[in-house]
Nucleic acid binder design. Sequence first.
DNA 1: CGCTCGCTTGATCTCCTTCAAGGACAGTGG
DNA 2: CCACTGTCCTTGAAGGAGATCAAGCGAGCG
Lengths: 247, 247
Amino acid sequence: MKPAGETLAQHLGCFGELPPEDRAALAELKAEVRDLPRQTDVLRRGDRPTHVVIVLGGLLYRYAVGPGGGRQIHSFYLPTEAPSVESLHLDYVDNHLGAVVHSRIGLFPHDQLHRLIDERPEIRRLLWRQTLVQGAIFREWLARNSTMTAYASLAHLFCEMFTRAQAAGLTNGNSCALPLTQGFVADALGLTAVHTNRTLQALRETGAVEWRSGRLTVKDWPKLQAIARFHPHYLHLRSNPRVRRKH
Amino acid sequence: MKPAGETLAQHLGCFGELPPEDRAALAELKAEVRDLPRQTDVLRRGDRPTHVVIVLGGLLYRYAVGPGGGRQIHSFYLPTEAPSVESLHLDYVDNHLGAVVHSRIGLFPHDQLHRLIDERPEIRRLLWRQTLVQGAIFREWLARNSTMTAYASLAHLFCEMFTRAQAAGLTNGNSCALPLTQGFVADALGLTAVHTNRTLQALRETGAVEWRSGRLTVKDWPKLQAIARFHPHYLHLRSNPRVRRKH
DNA sequence: CGCTCGCTTGATCTCCTTCAAGGACAGTGG
DNA sequence: CCACTGTCCTTGAAGGAGATCAAGCGAGCG
């Protein structure tokens, strides 16, 4: 497997130009690699992390648990993505980070990253930007869960995950791994598992998308995108042919 | 009125210690001050701003307009707050920023702030942190709008706005200005104006809170907080007596 | 004085929840 | 090899939170 530092460089490269020296500096980062069994947490609310997490394999998710035991999932994290860069500048984390399925993560010590941030403005710029894109995703999820029907919401989630998988180089033709259960999706969309199931069936019948046994297959992207009203500008990806930036 | 640079310093001070030199450096920032009539926009989706906005008076809001014309409000911005710090590192903004009521804003040129960011690590840290706290607020709104009832959601919004007003030094005893219409609140909570109205009446009847003609009065904070299940940790405010951080 | 904007109320409809239960499948232990 | 168990998916029926449609009212304002 590629060293974790290179993976981080690849991820940051999704958001902007990264000079070769900076890329090399990232590649030299030492990361502790750790395996996470499914349904275990890396970070819990209130923790004061000393490392930044990068996903090397599997699937992570960020979530909060409400007083009634209800779980709100804030985001899913594919391999190459970095879910906790923000911990560099917040003294405690305000939600949980766990593994959906058995996963492998890398841990970069804060001090190493802070050194790079101090010395290399481009790395700083892209790390910062990465946290801002996270914020943009949260806003999009807010709008989606607040205003869209279950039907469109589900399609939207599929569009986003597929687009991000594409940016991460994880797609295989028109399909990618998405090892979630319907319960996880329900908690991301703010629905019940029952209704998610029924909505999924409706989506399947359109023939636009298939999602079975942990694998997502986009059979008709324009149709799926139309159902979801999906526009990837909020992901701030560069060099994705599908992304048309407004100038 | 206090110079805009000092206001920015005050705001950043809500999130962490700011050395006197840094505070002085901020205070020397030159800002263009501008008046905004109500219901006008400062930034529109796709813009490439050259300045960072700070609210000096009135009330701003960040929003997106869906394909069906539906408006999702992502946040409100009180005086002293800075809604567009993220534009320093994103090349285009992905939603609109407008004035709810007649407002006054300050505009800091990007290059001036970039200079401070390069030269003053503490300012950089707090500016970055400010953007991360924004992200935390979006996550909280996501969870609120996705999982809470209209009744609790409305209470939650009141709790948040009052707490933020307190941090900004804008409260007067147990009340603060909140010059919104019910339609704005509805679009923030993902409800209709009609249902917002009915929910508001239910909240009024509890005697916990009053919100009339643009002024919010918290008559029973513990009760309101209990209804909303409000915990301010996500605001990452320091030195707010009400904030109990988990260690 | 009339007009617009925002608040309020009523009646009906629907999307989603809740509760309940059956079935498919994998892992485990006898 | 086969019961046993848990997890996930699926389906049905009933109930509720909030949407939608429609209309009246009050206050600020040109």
